Simulated assay, not measured.
Amino acid sequence: MNPEWIWGLIGGLLIGLGAAVYLLGNGRIMGASGILGALVDGSGKSEAKERLAFIAGVIVLPLLLKPLIAPQAETHLTSDLAVVVIAGLLVGVGTRIANGCTSGHGVCGISRFSLRGMVATVFYILAGGITLVLFRHVWGLI
């Protein structure tokens, strides 16, 4: 039996726990794009330390835990750096257009029964599926 689904389950539980702690701790939604966006555009100066701590935790904690928890885990990410950069930029543009990201709309929005979060989640999942079909199966780029 392939144990990869267990890692996905554990990751999902940790993301949900993080969202709940963030909401209970400061009364705000854990929307990663909003947290990072407010640092970039300067609108989050009053909470800059909190925002930087969150971003640092999102980046550093998995790097620290990987050798302990999943040293053999692999990623199926493309080795083409241009595809990774373009995909990242498109995700960033999409989060600004949707006024939120997967953590804000998908995790926090759906768990709060937010219609806006549910609609946004349906559309970004649909857009991701179409993008995958086009880039992998039609154009063969990834």
Rank of each mutant, 00 (worst) to 15 (best):
L65K: 07
L65S: 07
G88E: 05
G100H: 01
E4L: 15
F123E: 05
S79R: 14
I110L: 09
S111I: 07
D41N: 14
M1P: 14
M30E: 03
L68Y: 10
M30Y: 02
T102F: 01
S103Q: 01
T102G: 01
L65W: 03
A82D: 08
E4M: 14
L24V: 12
A48E: 12
A48T: 13
I6K: 10
L77F: 11
L77N: 13
S114D: 06
V133R: 11
K45E: 13
L9M: 14
N2R: 10
R28W: 09
G8K: 10
I142W: 09
G106S: 01
R51Q: 07
I55N: 06
G92E: 05
I6H: 06
T131Y: 09
S79W: 10
S43I: 06
S79N: 14
G8A: 12
L141R: 08
L90E: 02
M1F: 11
G12M: 07
G128L: 04
G8V: 07
L63M: 15
G129W: 09
S114C: 02
N26V: 09
W5L: 14
L89A: 10
P67E: 05
I59T: 07
M30P: 01
R96Q: 13
S33Y: 05
V107T: 01
L134M: 10
N99W: 00
M118P: 01
A73D: 08
G88Q: 05
G27W: 02
A38P: 04
P62G: 07
K45Q: 14
L39A: 03
L9K: 08
P62Y: 03
A127C: 12
L17C: 11
A19W: 04
G117Y: 01
L126F: 12
I125G: 04
G140C: 08
N2I: 09
Q72C: 09
G18K: 06
L77D: 12
L24Q: 15
V133K: 12
K66F: 07
W139I: 08
V83W: 08
Q72L: 13
G31W: 00
G12T: 06
S46L: 13
G117H: 00
R51A: 09
A32F: 15
G16K: 02
G88D: 02
L68W: 13
S33M: 04
A56I: 12
L90A: 10
L115H: 10
V84A: 09
L89V: 10
I97F: 10
S46E: 15
M30L: 15
F113S: 09
A56R: 06
E74W: 07
T121K: 01
V133H: 14
G92A: 05
G129R: 04
G106K: 00
F123V: 09
H105A: 03
V21F: 04
G44C: 06
K49C: 12
K49H: 14
G12W: 03
K45Y: 11
I55F: 11
I59K: 05
K45F: 13
M30S: 11
A19E: 01
Y124L: 11
G109V: 00
I125H: 04
P3N: 12
G31Q: 01
I130D: 04
W139A: 12
S111K: 10
R28V: 08
K49T: 15
L68N: 08
L13N: 03
R136T: 12
Y22Q: 03
N2V: 09
D80L: 06
P71E: 05
I29G: 03
G27K: 03
R96V: 11
C108Q: 07
V122A: 02
V122S: 00
I97V: 12
T75P: 03
L115T: 13
W139L: 14
A20Q: 15
